[in-house]
Deep mutational scan, measured.
Amino acid sequence: MKTQEELTEIVRDHFSDMGEAATLYVQVYESSLESLVGGVIFEDGRHYTFVYENEDLVYE
């Protein structure tokens, strides 16, 4: 099982292909040891929320 830090790095790496991230945040109260819930805000103003669970990243 991966730590939240490892899950955060996986998510950060995925979003790095989409541009320069200004902020990546984790909603600790919705996350667990198995999943990471949060969002990313890019330098150009785009904002996505995400759920990373079971090696699957879903974002909108």
Results as ranks from 00 to 15, higher is better:
residue 29 Y to M: 05
residue 23 T to W: 14
residue 17 D to T: 15
residue 59 Y to H: 06
residue 22 A to C: 15
residue 44 D to A: 05
residue 26 V to A: 00
residue 37 V to I: 12
residue 48 Y to S: 00
residue 22 A to I: 14
residue 36 L to H: 00
residue 42 F to D: 01
residue 46 R to K: 04
residue 40 V to P: 00
residue 31 S to Q: 11
residue 13 D to S: 14
residue 46 R to S: 07
residue 13 D to L: 15
residue 30 E to W: 13
residue 42 F to H: 00
residue 11 V to L: 06
residue 1 M to L: 11
residue 35 S to G: 06
residue 10 I to K: 06
residue 15 F to E: 02
residue 41 I to T: 05
residue 10 I to R: 07
residue 29 Y to Q: 03
residue 8 T to A: 10
residue 50 F to W: 07
residue 12 R to H: 04
residue 23 T to V: 13
residue 15 F to Y: 02
residue 47 H to Q: 04
residue 45 G to K: 01
residue 8 T to L: 15
residue 33 L to N: 12
residue 22 A to V: 14
residue 43 E to L: 12
residue 26 V to N: 00
residue 56 D to Y: 14
residue 35 S to R: 15
residue 13 D to T: 13
residue 27 Q to R: 05
residue 19 G to A: 05
residue 58 V to K: 12
residue 22 A to N: 09
residue 47 H to N: 03
residue 44 D to F: 13
residue 45 G to F: 11
residue 3 T to G: 05
residue 44 D to C: 10
residue 28 V to D: 06
residue 16 S to Q: 09
residue 17 D to M: 14
residue 59 Y to L: 11
residue 23 T to P: 06
residue 45 G to Y: 08
residue 34 E to F: 07
residue 33 L to Y: 09
residue 33 L to D: 06
residue 28 V to E: 08
residue 55 E to D: 12
residue 35 S to T: 12
residue 25 Y to R: 03
residue 18 M to T: 05
residue 26 V to S: 00
residue 13 D to Y: 11
residue 49 T to L: 11
residue 27 Q to G: 06
residue 25 Y to A: 03
residue 10 I to Y: 04
residue 38 G to Q: 04
residue 16 S to T: 08
residue 22 A to K: 13
residue 57 L to A: 02
residue 1 M to V: 11
residue 40 V to E: 00
residue 39 G to S: 10
residue 41 I to P: 00
residue 51 V to W: 11
residue 48 Y to F: 11
residue 55 E to K: 11
residue 14 H to C: 15
residue 12 R to M: 11
residue 58 V to M: 08
residue 23 T to S: 08
residue 12 R to L: 13
residue 11 V to N: 02
residue 26 V to T: 01
residue 12 R to T: 04
residue 22 A to E: 07
residue 12 R to I: 08
residue 1 M to Y: 09
residue 11 V to D: 02
residue 31 S to L: 11
residue 1 M to C: 15
residue 41 I to E: 02
residue 46 R to C: 11
residue 56 D to V: 15
residue 30 E to Q: 08
residue 43 E to A: 13
residue 11 V to S: 04
residue 3 T to Y: 04
residue 5 E to L: 08
residue 57 L to W: 05
residue 39 G to Q: 10
residue 18 M to P: 03
residue 56 D to M: 15
residue 24 L to T: 00
residue 22 A to S: 08
residue 11 V to E: 03
residue 54 N to T: 04
residue 41 I to A: 01
residue 58 V to Q: 09
residue 3 T to I: 04
residue 22 A to G: 09
residue 17 D to N: 14
residue 38 G to T: 02
residue 46 R to H: 05
residue 28 V to P: 01
residue 34 E to D: 07
residue 48 Y to W: 06
residue 10 I to N: 03
residue 4 Q to V: 13
residue 43 E to S: 12
residue 47 H to P: 00
residue 49 T to W: 12
residue 27 Q to P: 03
residue 30 E to I: 14
residue 9 E to V: 09
residue 43 E to M: 11
residue 40 V to Q: 00
residue 30 E to Y: 13
residue 25 Y to H: 05
residue 22 A to F: 15
residue 56 D to T: 15
residue 51 V to Y: 08
residue 3 T to K: 04
residue 42 F to S: 00
residue 41 I to H: 05
residue 48 Y to V: 04
residue 22 A to Y: 15
residue 15 F to P: 02
residue 17 D to E: 13
residue 19 G to R: 05
residue 43 E to T: 13
residue 16 S to L: 11
residue 8 T to F: 10
residue 15 F to V: 02
residue 16 S to A: 12
residue 13 D to R: 15
residue 2 K to D: 04
residue 14 H to E: 04
residue 2 K to R: 10
residue 24 L to C: 13
residue 44 D to Q: 02
residue 59 Y to W: 13
residue 16 S to H: 08
residue 36 L to K: 00
residue 38 G to I: 14
residue 36 L to E: 00
